[in-house]
């Protein structure tokens, strides 16, 4: 046992001597030191990568795989329930949608202000949606015209279901500034 224990000590001594004489040492010894440094670099990179990976996993915790949120599509009855020229707010509370019918058809506006997500109020007399949080104003069509809102309200997909009811699908949005309002599903021709 003592002999075995002696062995590594001997090696250590010799390596110490090698490093001590590195100044006038052979090329081989210099390469040894250099390769040691590069091994050190590899070790540090591995450490940094592992730490980074670990923290990325921690960050991933904040994004669950399954979301429990209310359904995104719903039926709102047949088109003749909606009067021409009126902004219908009956689904505002339940589904966050305004149904607006004009002479050509029906479209579904999102009730989420494009500024910071408050719910604007429909003011019949002034014929506009007005946001209580920062004063943005939107026309009946959803186009923004006053206050800080950067872009028009979004419209939801609106189609006829098989049973003659209107189906609103909130998972598909149409944005005016991207030219999506001309999409056939953004507007229900009646």
């Amino acid at each position: 046992m003592p002999a075995e224990a002696e062995q590594p000590l001997q090696e250590k001594k010799s390596s110490q001597q090698a490093t001590a004489s590195v100044g006038e040492g052979t090329i081989k010894e210099k390469v040894q030191r250099r390769s040691f440094i590069s091994w050190l670099a590899v070790a540090w990179v591995a450490f940094a990568a592992a730490t980074g990976g670990f923290f990325t996993m921690i960050l991933r915790i904040f994004f669950p795989n399954v979301l429990f949120e209310p359904p995104q599509s719903f039926k709102i009855g047949p088109p003749d329930e909606y009067e021409i020229g009126l902004v219908d707010i009956r689904w505002q509370a339940k589904f966050g949608t305004w149904i607006i019918r004009d002479s050509e058809g029906i479209y579904a506006l999102s009730t989420v202000c494009t500024h910071l997500g408050c719910t604007p109020n429909w003011l019949e007399n002034e014929s506009k949606f007005k946001c209580p949080c920062h004063g943005s104003g939107f026309r009946r069509s959803g186009i923004n015209f006053e206050g800080p809102a950067p872009r028009p309200l979004e419209r939801y997909r609106i189609v006829m279901a098989d049973d003659g009811q209107i189906l609103i699908d909130k998972s598909k949005k149409f944005q005016y500034e991207k030219g999506q309002w001309s999409d056939p599903e953004a507007f229900l021709v009646v």
């Binding site: 960050l59 904040f62 994004f63 669950p64 979301l67 949120e69 997500g117």
Partner: peptide, 15 residues
Amino acid sequence: GADAKFALLGGRFVG
């Protein structure tokens, strides 16, 4: 479904 707001709220809206 994956941005700073989602990380803060744990959902797409305040729930």
